[in-house]
């Protein structure tokens, strides 16, 4: 069993390419490849080394991917998996628009490298409803008009569901505090709080 749990080499790409023993194994001409790496031109080749495997579940669907380590979970969802319901609002963990659940906990997907989510289960806004049947929080947001432009809404809803599940929705004041990581520039806050409070008070398991 390796001490390193993922299979990326400990060396930079260039260092890696310099290891002739590996080149032999790969049946490649060292000089050509090395030159390519130095000039950063052979991207097709580079991908072999720069992307690393990632296995995760998103909305109960299993994915086996290869991604660059610098790709965030947010960009993976939006650009690779076409799950654009999760929004990019600031890309720095300062607005909450990118909130998703990772193994049940709400997190800002913009500050999470995708590769840090190996083996985890991610739920996005697209995974909240059961088919055509809206999740009670989604229905409550519509009823209380908990949005205007709708851009922060998926993040607000994911955060709201977690807020109730965590047991932090016992009063308006508590909801406001525990929802403060989700900014809404249209200012739908009071309506969002009403929606959350209603879902909480109904007591339905969410």
């Amino acid at each position: 069993m390796s001490e390193i749990d993922n299979n990326q080499s400990g060396d930079t790409r260039r260092d890696f390419l310099k290891k002739t023993s590996l080149f032999t194994a790969l049946s490649l001409t060292p000089l050509t490849v090395l030159k390519a790496a130095d000039n950063k031109v052979d991207e097709r080749f580079a991908e072999l080394f720069e992307k690393i495997p990632l296995n995760l579940k998103v909305n109960n669907k299993a994915y086996s991917l290869k991604v660059e380590p610098r790709v965030t979970l947010l960009d993976l969802l939006r650009e690779e998996l076409d799950l654009t319901g999760t929004k990019k609002g600031c890309d720095h963990g300062q607005c909450g628009a990118c909130t998703v659940h990772v193994d049940g906990a709400r997190v800002n997907s913009c500050l999470s490298l995708a590769v840090m989510n190996e083996g985890k289960s991610v739920t996005t806004i697209e995974g909240l409803a059961k088919g055509e049947e809206l999740h009670p929080m989604q229905a409550a947001f519509i009823k209380h008009d908990g949005f205007q432009c709708g851009y922060c809404t998926p993040g607000q809803i994911m955060s709201a569901v977690a807020c109730v599940r965590e047991g932090h929705a016992n009063s308006k004041e508590e909801i406001r505090e525990y929802m403060s990581g989700n900014i809404c520039r249209c200012g739908a806050y009071p309506n969002i709080v009403d929606a959350i409070q209603e879902v909480k008070e109904k007591g339905t398991a969410i």
Binding site: E3, D11, P69, L113, V115, E118
Partner: peptide
């Protein structure tokens, strides 16, 4: 496009960072 290594052993983590000036730990991130 940095390299990314994952380990579940404290000692390994320590040695990986100690020997490489450009390496650093990432926790929550």
């Amino acid at each position: 496009n940095f390299q990314f290594l994952r380990t579940s052993i404290v000692k390994t983590a320590l040695s990986l960072v100690a020997k490489d000036p450009k390496a650093t730990f990432i926790a929550g991130g």
